[in-house]
Design a protein around this nucleic acid. Sequence first.
DNA 1: CAAAAACTGTTCCACATGGAGCAATTCCGT
DNA 2: ACGGAATTGCTCCATGTGGAACAGTTTTTG
Lengths: 151, 151
Amino acid sequence: MKLIDIVGGTPLPLAYRIAFITNFYREPLLRRMEREFGLMRPEWTILICLNFRDALNPRDICEITEQPRNTISRGVAALVRKGLVEQASDPEDARRVVLRLTDAGRAMYDAVMPMFVEGEARLAATLTEAERRTLQELLDKLCRNVGHWRS
Amino acid sequence: MKLIDIVGGTPLPLAYRIAFITNFYREPLLRRMEREFGLMRPEWTILICLNFRDALNPRDICEITEQPRNTISRGVAALVRKGLVEQASDPEDARRVVLRLTDAGRAMYDAVMPMFVEGEARLAATLTEAERRTLQELLDKLCRNVGHWRS
DNA sequence: CAAAAACTGTTCCACATGGAGCAATTCCGT
DNA sequence: ACGGAATTGCTCCATGTGGAACAGTTTTTG
C-alpha cells in the first residue's frame, strides 16, 4: 500500500498526481536547503525573483509570487542580515524599497540551485526525450492558462 | 511580470511548472477547505486514506503519506473530537489503534471532495481530451517511478 | 527466561507562516 | 491646495507543523 495507489484511485487524476510529484520532489529538497544552507523558503523565493530581475520592490515580489507582505518582509530582513540582499530607498517613492542581490547573494543562488537542478535531472531521467518535450509543453499550456482555472 | 515568466526562465523546466500548478491549484482550495469546513490539511489527508481503505493504523497513514507521526496523531485526535473518526484498540497489538470513518466522516469526505473535483475540471478544461490522456499517462509514469527520483 | 532493542502513539517545545492592524507616504477628488 | 483614500512595508499575535523526547507494548537476543 503506497500513496500512489490512493492517488490513482481518487477522482482527481491530474491534480493529485501533480501534487504527488511536487511533494516528493520539492519538499525533501527544501528541507535540505533549510538544513544545509540555512535559507527559509520565502528567502529562496526572493533570491529566485531577484536573480531573474534585479532591483525589485518587496511589493513586486508579493505580486509576482502572490505571497503575503509580511512573509516577504521577513524574508528580505533575513537576507539583509545575512548580507545576501541590499535595500536602498526608492528616490521616486519614499514608501518603496529597492532590493538588489549582493555578490554573496548571487553566490548563494549559484550554490543552492544545482541541488534542484540535480533533482530535476533525476525526474526527467524517467522519461524519454520526446516524452519530456511533450510533458513540458502540456505543463506550459496549463501554466499559461492559469487565469482560467485558478481557484 | 508574472511568476510564469520567471518559472519559464529557470533551469527547472518540469519541476517548476509542476510546483507552479500545485501552488495555484491546491493552495487556494486547501485554504477554502480550512475556512469553510474547519478541516486542517493533515485531517483531510487522513480522511482520504481512510475513505480509500478503512481500519488503518496511524502508523499505516504515516507510511503511506510519509508525514511525521505527531502530525497524524494530532489530526486523528481532531477528527475523533469532531466525531468523524472512531478509534478502537487493536486486539492483536495493544500499541496499535484501529481507525475507522464514521458516517459523519464519510459525509464530510463527500462534502469536501467536490470542491477539489471542480478545480480539477477547470484545470482539465484547458486541455483537449487527447492532451489530458497524454498528460495523465506521463504524470503517472513519473509517479510510479518515484523511487528513482525522490530526493 | 531475562534484558535489551524496536515499535507505536502521544506530548512538549521551537519556530515558520499567515492575518490583522499600524505608521509613513503618495494619490486622488473636490 | 487640502483632506480622505489607497499604497507600502513592518510588527504583533495566533496557530499549524515538525523534531525530539517519552511511556507503554512487543519482539528479538543472549
